[in-house]
Nucleic acid binder design. Structure first.
Lengths: 221, 221
DNA sequence: TTCTCTATGTGATTTTTATCACAGACAAAC
DNA sequence: GTTTGTCTGTGATAAAAATCACATAGAGAA
C-alpha cells in the first residue's frame, strides 16, 4: 500500500491513471510497492527475469548494454513519467531482460506486480495508449542510435551528446565514453580538440559549451 | 474488398483475426486493400507519413537505414505473419517513418487504413497482444543490433550473418555489406579469410558454409 | 564470338578508434 | 600539509575499417 504523498506523485507523473474508476485504482494501489534505490543500484540486469513493472517517480535510470571487455553503451535513459519499456517487453513476451538498468541518481519508484500490469494494460485504454507511445518512441530512438553508431564518427556523436545535456555539463570523460560506447582516452582527446577550436571550455568534471552552433554543425555533417 | 484466396492467406498468416466476430471481420476486410509490389519497390521511406498498416502475405521487406554516403544498414526483416512494427509506431505516435522499407522479393500484402488499424488495436485483444509481442521482439532485436554494431568486429558479425542464412547462401558481397552496414571490399576480404581457413567455399553469388562450428565460435568470441 | 555488365580480388594508403603506459592535477580525507 | 584516490593529458603503437584505384573473371546479350 502506498502513502498518500507517493500516490500524489504517481498520479502527477502518470496522469492517465486518474481516468481509472476509483475501485480499480484502489485495487492497483493496494498491490503496488513503493521503493527507493540509491544511485548506482543495478535495478535489473541481463538474463534476469522481470520482477515487476516500475513507474518512476524521481531520479533516472540508465539502460545500458555492457560488453565483455568492460566497455558499455547507453541505449536510453528513463525519467519520471516514462516508465521502463524494456520491462514491458519482458513482461509481455520473453521472460528475460536484454540490458542492464542502473540508477543514475537516487530513484523513487512504484513497482506493479506483473499481473497488475497485465490487467491494467488489457482493461485501461489510456494506459495502453501510453505504453504503446513509449514503445514507439523507444523504437525510434533505438533506430536512430543504431544509425549513429554505424555511420557517424565519434566526434559527431560526442558533439550531439554535449548539445543534448544542460549547459554547463557536470560529468566525467569516462561517463561520456560509457554513454557513447567508447573509451575515456578518445573522449578526452576529442574534447581537447573541441576546446582548441574554442567550442567548449574544460574543467574538472565540467564542460561548458561556448559554441553550440559549431558543435551542431559538426554533429549534422 | 479482398478476394477469397487473399482472405484465406490473411487468416492463415494472422490467425488471431479469426477470433474476430464475423461482423467485425467483414467490416475489416471491406476496408482493406490487397497490393502486390515487385522486388525492389521502396515500400516506404524516411520522413514520409504512413499510409496504412501492412499485413504481409508473401515475400519479405528489408527495413534499412541509409547513410549519406550511400552505405546502408539493415535494421530487421519483415516476413509474412510479422507485419511491420515500424508502421505501428508511425500510426500510433509520430507521423513519420524513420527508416526505409524495401521489398526484398515480390511482395503481397493487405493494407489496413489507419483508422481500421486503430479500431482493431483498441477493440481486439488478440490482435493487440500480437502487436505488443512484435514490438517487444523488435525492441530486443534492435538492442542486440546496437550492441553488435558497437562492440563486435565485422568478422564476427559477418560470421553470425552467414550462419543465420540458409546454406548455401545466394547473395552478393555488396548485399552482405549492406546488411552489415559496411562496404563490399571489407566483406570480400573477410570472406576470403574464411575461405582460407576452410570455413566457407566461395563462388559467384554463392557462399557455402562448410564449417559452421568455426564460424559460430568466432561469432561468439 | 565478342561485348558488356556486374561481381569479385587485391594492393596501397588513410582514417578512425582502441590500447598501453604513464605523468600530472585536483579534491577530499587524514 | 601530506596522502590518497579519482580525473585528466598525452605519446607511442596497434588494430580495424574505409577508401581509392584498378585488375580479373564470369554470365548473359548482341
Amino acid at each position: 500500500m502506498l502513502d498518500s504523498k507517493t500516490q500524489n506523485l504517481l498520479l502527477q507523473h502518470y496522469p492517465m491513471l486518474r481516468e481509472l474508476p476509483a475501485s480499480q485504482l484502489d485495487a492497483l494501489l493496494a498491490n503496488a510497492t513503493a521503493m527507493r534505490l540509491p544511485a548506482g543500484t543495478v535495478v535489473f540486469d541481463e538474463n534476469q527475469p522481470c520482477q515487476g513493472f516500475p513507474l518512476l517517480l524521481s531520479g533516472s535510470i540508465r539502460i545500458v548494454k555492457a560488453a565483455a571487455n568492460g566497455r558499455e553503451l547507453q541505449l536510453y535513459r528513463v525519467s519520471p513519467g516514462e516508465s521502463c519499456i524494456l520491462t514491458s517487453s519482458c513482461l509481455l513476451g520473453h521472460a528475460q531482460y536484454h540490458a542492464r538498468g542502473v540508477a543514475e541518481q537516487d530513484v523513487e519508484l512504484v513497482a506493479l506486480p506483473p499481473l497488475a500490469f497485465r490487467m491494467l494494460l488489457s482493461s485501461h485504454e489510456p494506459f495502453r495508449d501510453y505504453i504503446f507511445s513509449l514503445f514507439s518512441e523507444r523504437l525510434t530512438d533505438l533506430m536512430q542510435l543504431v544509425s549513429a553508431v554505424a555511420f557517424q564518427k565519434l566526434d559527431q556523436r560526442l558533439a550531439a551528446l554535449l548539445l543534448a545535456k544542460p549547459n554547463p555539463i557536470q560529468t566525467t570523460h569516462q561517463a561520456l565514453a560509457d554513454e557513447l560506447g567508447s573509451v575515456r582516452e578518445i573522449v578526452s582527446r576529442l574534447l581537447k580538440n573541441f576546446a582548441e577550436q574554442g567550442w567548449v571550455k574544460l574543467g574538472r568534471e565540467q564542460i561548458e559549451v561556448v559554441n553550440a552552433a559549431a558543435l551542431k554543425k559538426l554533429s549534422e555533417l
